[in-house]
């Protein structure tokens, strides 16, 4: 048998962990080798004496006391740490709850204190009325003026806006563009033409009456200026005069009509004398012009 195997059997024998089969095998070896038996006995005695050494050297009671003190300290620290953690958690939850309550309060207060009035969006709608196309005596009284207005000839037949836009869809589309530059370009293109047809004139009338931009309306006037001697153009200017709220445009139209010596414009210009919105300089100009026409 190998010496290593014998060593393993001996150590198991010494500490009492040997199996019965191994013990029998070892006892056979002891019978054959008395020295081995003696050695095993000596080692077993020493092994047992180590147990006695263990029992003789015991820790002092102070070690137990120190351990329990340490354990108590750790437990106290642990509890303190836990309570601190709980406190912090509670604090965080309270903060969240306070925030939610404040939001709800603000929402409730806002709901009951805010005005219930609906919001209106205002839109200006212009209603166009035909202006009678007739001459008028500026020296007559208001009754006569009314009779003259009543007996005024109806405005010549005009092609409706829808029909016009159907005939010149591109022109109308360009004049209704959102961009002022596009609209000005379209008007300036008309200016380059030597002769404008009825549709194009109506388009310019539309610009004069409806375009919100004063500059574009003035451009339209500038386009019509060379043709102001034409009765149809004068008609457009007379009709447009009633729609203008801008002094510069009113004055420009009056100037054009005076330059053209348009007698058809007299009733409309007389009506303007009663309007407070027309400035005094324009009114004086109108009066002087009408007197000049009559003389």
């Amino acid at each position: 048998m190998k010496s290593e195997k014998i060593e393993h059997l001996l150590i198991q024998y010494i500490n009492g962990e040997i199996s019965s089969a191994d013990k029998a095998m070892l006892e056979n070896l002891f019978e054959q080798d008395s020295m081995l038996k003696e050695k095993a006995a000596e080692l077993a005695t020493l092994w047992l004496s180590l147990d006695e050494v263990k029992t003789k050297s015991e820790p002092s009671p102070a070690m137990d006391a120190d351990f329990y003190d340490m354990l108590q300290n750790v437990e106290v620290n642990q509890k303190h740490k836990n309570s601190l953690l709980l406190h912090n958690n509670l604090k965080s939850w309270l903060k969240i709850a306070a925030t939610v309550i404040m939001c709800l309060t603000a929402f409730t207060v806002g709901r009951y204190t805010a005005s219930n009035n609906p919001v209106y969006k205002y839109k200006t709608v212009f209603i166009k009325q035909p202006i009678p196309d007739s001459s008028f005596n500026p020296h007559g009284d208001s009754k006569r003026r009314q009779e003259a207005l009543a007996s005024a000839k109806p405005a010549p037949h005009r092609i409706s806006k829808n029909k016009l836009s159907n005939r010149h869809p591109k022109l109308f589309q360009q004049l209704r563009s959102l961009y002022a530059s596009d609209r000005i370009m379209t008007i300036l293109k008309l200016k380059e033409k030597t002769h404008l047809n009825t549709g194009e004139l109506r388009a310019l009338e539309l610009v004069l009456n409806e375009d919100p931009n004063e500059g574009i309306r003035l451009t339209a006037l500038y386009t019509l200026k060379p043709m102001v001697s034409q009765p149809e153009v004068q008609q457009i200017l007379i009709a447009a005069l009633g729609h203008q709220d801008d002094e510069a445009i009113q004055t420009s139209i009056v100037d054009l009509l005076i330059a053209a010596k348009s007698k058809q414009a007299i009733p409309t210009m007389l009506a303007m004398l009663d309007k407070k919105s027309v400035n005094t300089i324009t009114q004086e100009k109108i009066k002087t012009s009408i007197e000049a026409f009559l003389n």
Partner: peptide, 12 residues
Amino acid sequence: KTRVFRAISQLK
């Protein structure tokens, strides 16, 4: 096991 056996032998 070998080390324990040798330890006890040397201790002796």
